[in-house]
């Protein structure tokens, strides 16, 4: 029983981690929380559905197109909704991102809401379960798990080794100094929002066969992913992944051993406790408030 609970907890955690990565990318570079991150996931999934199922493009190009489309949606939302507010304060950006989430949900509902309730998306590889040494797993879950690790490494490498990645890191550390040395902060903020959206899109195309697609998928995912990101310290990509896996594991183990009615609430109880007792998150990192 424990083995199955752990694997399913990790699979669930990979889902939260993938969404949490997007939250961290945006927060790390801009200091803003994008509450529409869940809706960007939803939209990414519907893009893949549109390209592959509705327009009949081949599988892999459809997925790539969906990620690219998400990237542009992210840049667009920054340009129209967040850019003017970056100086106005966190509360304004939060509310603007809520407004964006309503917009995106409404648009998706009016375009795809009449197609079905929970829209299935064909899996990347065979759907049937495979037997690994007496232990049965779903191939799509393995793919999703592996891909989220790969995506994490890719993004960490991006921040470490590319010029724009280093700049993103620089503006995160000190926006005034970055401006002084001639870094275009606005463009980098746009890039951060776009990358956050692209990673949500990537998460969606990997996970859609398991999560199914519907306009309201975003909120529930966002809130668990947000918990995961905070658990991981909000500044660290690896922290987001670990935080996500922990939330997934807690949910599975609590449901399995304590009782299934506590599954959904367990993440919130954990997050309350963590915030009260270890407010910096498990990956520690920087002080959250210097006075």
């Amino acid at each position: 029983m424990l083995g199955y609970l752990i694997t399913s907890g990790l699979a669930l955690g990979a889902l939260y981690a993938l969404v949490a990565i997007g939250i961290v990318i945006v927060f790390k570079s801009t200091g803003a929380i994008n509450l529409a991150q869940g809706e960007l996931f939803m939209l990414g999934g519907f893009f893949a559905f549109m390209f592959h199922v509705q327009m009949g493009y081949p599988y892999i190009p459809s997925l790539l197109l969906a990620v690219v489309a998400s990237f542009f949606i992210g840049a667009l939302t920054y340009q129209f909704a967040f850019r003017p507010l970056m100086k106005a304060g966190l509360v304004s950006v939060l509310l603007a991102s809520i407004a964006v989430s309503f917009l995106l949900k409404g648009v998706a509902r009016n375009i795809w809401g009449g197609v079905g309730d929970y829209i299935p998306f064909p899996p990347m590889i065979t759907a049937s379960a495979i037997n690994l040494n007496g232990f049965i797993v779903l191939p799509q879950q393995l793919v999703a798990f592996g891909a989220s690790i790969a995506l994490m490494l890719l993004i960490v490498a991006y921040f470490k080794f590319t010029r724009s990645g280093k700049w993103l890191q620089a503006i995160a550390d000190n926006v005034k100094a970055a401006t002084l040395v001639g870094i275009r902060v606005g463009a980098l903020h746009r890039l951060a929002f776009a990358l956050g959206a692209a990673s949500a899109g990537a998460a969606a195309v990997l996970m859609a066969p398991l999560t199914l697609l519907y306009p309201d998928i975003g909120f529930n995912l966002f809130i668990k992913a947000f918990a995961a990101a905070v658990l991981g310290g909000l500044h660290s990509i690896a922290g987001a992944v670990i935080g996500g896996l922990i939330v997934g594991l807690v949910e599975a183990l609590v449901a399995g051993y304590v009782g299934s009615k506590f599954q959904d609430v367990s993440a919130f109880v954990v997050i309350m406790l963590v915030l009260v007792f270890i407010p910096r998150g498990i990956m520690g990192g920087k002080a959250m408030r210097k006075v």
Partner: peptide, 17 residues
């Protein structure tokens, strides 16, 4: 008598129980 949320992505614990 198991419980699950309508939007659940995973039901392994419930199935095991």
């Amino acid at each position: 008598d198991e419980e699950i949320i309508g939007e659940a992505n995973d039901a392994t614990p419930q199935a095991l129980r």
